[in-house]
């Protein structure tokens, strides 16, 4: 037999093997999770035929995803707007007239900061919560019980959460946009010596409805990602408490990664190809 440093037994002990093994496992897990989520998305789309019967569940989920996330969104948005104003003023100082501060804040908030930061903070809260809830239901056989009763868990659990998140993320983003611009407006007035009139004039000068629309399209997509990855991680949970904890972590990680990747894809698609044409 040939000697070998590449024989399976020895290769497994090589220090690099553990690293590549871990990377491989993470990649396989991510692909598996996204694959399962795709199947879940398709089944949820099919379950939309019965959305009328599920409307109370959608409303309940909208309350949990939307209304209960509002305090977090308010805090994040106000301070995001305030920080944007301070940092934009610092970077534009001596180069650009102050009237453009309103433009910079409005554009950066509605196109990027509003949808992305809202999705990341709401995603952390909502996807972990969905994964933990469905994961607990999975390990305590509640989902099996639902199946055994002839009730489709996708229609009863997954579809209402996805629909609610698709609706509520754009709504939360509108709140976030208004509050962040308000935060920027307040700081500009209070500490940057910019009058309200000039701030608003700057905003109006380059206002484009498609910027707002682009941000809301992003928010819609992020809503789908957050709820879908939460449901996928929850439904694939195995084991006990450790499995539920792992599902919540996996949901947050995959949601955040996919939000950032899809943000780039949507930015290119919307602002370079569709609106930029």
């Amino acid at each position: 037999m040939r000697n070998s440093s590449i024989a399976p037994g020895r290769a497994a002990n090589h220090p690099g093997a553990a690293l590549f093994g871990t990377i491989g496992r993470v990649a396989i897990d991510l692909v598996t999770e996204v694959g399962f989520a795709s199947v879940l998305l398709w089944r949820s789309i099919l379950a939309l035929r019965k959305i009328g019967r599920s409307m109370p569940l959608v409303v309940e989920q909208a309350r949990r995803i939307g209304v209960e996330s509002l305090p977090l969104v308010i805090m994040t948005s106000v301070f995001t707007g305030a920080v944007t104003a301070v940092q934009a003023a610092y970077q534009l100082k001596d180069f650009v007239p102050k009237i453009y501060l309103g433009t910079a804040i409005y554009k950066s908030v509605v196109i990027e900061l509003g949808p992305v930061l809202t999705a990341l903070v709401v995603g952390g809260r909502v996807s972990a919560s969905i994964a933990a809830e469905l994961g607990t239901m999975r390990v305590t056989e509640q989902i099996d019980a639902m199946d055994a009763m002839g009730i489709d868990p996708v229609r009863y659990l997954t579809m209402p959460r996805i629909v609610a998140a698709l609706v509520m993320l754009p709504v939360l983003t509108v709140f976030a946009d208004i509050l962040a611009i308000g935060g920027g407006f307040f700081v500009s007035n209070a500490s940057l010596d910019l009058s309200p009139k000039i701030f608003i004039a700057g905003m109006k000068m380059h206002f484009l409805a498609r910027d707002v629309l682009g941000g809301l399209i992003k928010a819609f997509a992020f809503g789908g990602i957050i709820s879908l990855m939460g449901c996928a991680a929850g439904l694939r949970t195995r084991g006990g408490a450790v499995g539920v904890g792992g599902a919540a972590t996996r949901a947050v990680v995959t949601s955040c990664v996919l939000i950032l990747v899809s943000d780039y894809v949507l930015a290119v698609l919307l602002f370079s190809i569709i609106f930029g044409a």
Binding site: T136, M149, G150
Partner: peptide, 16 residues
């Protein structure tokens, strides 16, 4: 399945 009833080991009641 609608013609079945099943009692699970841990009861599997919906805790929500």
């Amino acid at each position: 399945r609608m013609r079945f009833g099943m009692v699970f080991q841990g009861a599997a009641l919906f805790d929500s």
